[in-house]
Design a protein around this nucleic acid. Structure first.
Lengths: 174, 174
DNA sequence: CAACTCATGTAACCAGTTACATGATTCA
DNA sequence: TGAATCATGTAACTGGTTACATGAGTTG
């Protein structure tokens, strides 16, 4: 049930169309909660049917502008302060680790160093993003920075772990 | 498509029944790829229909013992060495961060310190697990340790990040 | 013999992905 | 006027969760 709260959260800042929201999912939210077009339009319909959103304007090309209602704000707040976030549980990258014993040690090591490389690239990508965003002191920018920092620390940790793990597999011949 | 590979991976080490496999998903794989009973039985049926598994014994209470076939091993290997792991993308914990600006700073800080606490508890839980497992040098134990280390580093990083983030929100009055 | 564990299976539902389908407006 | 962008919607499918249903064998 997080998609609806993502929509409510975006619309809490400013009213927008499905098309506008979609772009937020492809950019800022891409690393926290991506969503597809069909999902967004479908959920907007349900949210307005339930009175959490209103259509407050209609523009060219059938554009509908959605605005959050009071009960929408209440639902968002409830989700933020009362509902415990579910932990992320699934990682096919980590699942593979359990089965590396079915490969030759050299192959297992190749897998782990490749993962280190993926994490390093992701870290570099986020650093580039960090450099391109204007970090004024606005509230949105503060929390955006906090979220980005999570990605930076995560990718760094993954890189360090994968390099360490690769060493565990074929220890340097002593 | 990772569930089937998790099953193949478990059966690559030893033949087992659906019931046996289910227990692996509740214990060792719980933190990498959990699965439910209905999912496991369903997938075992599909895998044997496709010839990746065979039923090699039947026991009391309708127990069926599944064994991996050669094409099952080939598929597992393919998945391990050729298929790029998909990155984990969804975190409702992180999604909430984007919308903390709709709360009072004090409430946002409460959220972040609570997340630090959750991560600390999880780290402690994994440490306890680490102490209770016999870490002989067996291949399974080596890779199990590597996976556990991932959890330890992740929870530590999450704790550090959440504490740092909480400080960003209401900086100590200077 | 009662309670517990072992053991499998199915049905309904929910969230998310991919693909199909359509058309208006803007801009070079 | 042709291409790009804006804009919405639906259908089919996949993976995962919850709940229902049944029954055999084991242990105290």
């Amino acid at each position: 049930m997080s998609l609806r709260h993502a929509l409510l959260g975006l619309l809490a800042n400013r009213s927008a169309s499905g098309y506008d929201l979609l772009k937020s999912f492809e950019t800022s939210l891409a690393n926290a909660w991506p969503a597809t077009q069909s999902q967004v339009y479908g959920e907007l319909g349900k949210l307005s049917a339930e009175g959490l959103l209103d259509v407050t304007a209609e523009g060219p090309r059938g554009r509908k502008e959605y605005s959050i209602t009071e009960s929408g704000r209440a639902e968002l707040r409830h989700w933020l302060v009362e509902v415990e976030p579910e932990r992320v549980r699934r990682s096919s990258m980590l699942l593979r680790v359990f089965f590396l014993d079915t490969l030759a040690p050299e192959e297992a090591r190749t897998y782990l160093t490749a993962q280190a490389e993926v994490a390093a690239e992701r870290n570099a990508g986020l650093r580039a993003l960090e450099a391109n965003v204007p970090w004024d002191g606005s509230p949105l920018s503060v929390y955006g920075r906090v979220a980005l920092e999570y990605g930076l620390r995560l990718s760094q940790m993954q890189r360090d772990w994968a390099e360490w793990a690769a060493e565990q597999v074929t220890p340097p011949t002593t």
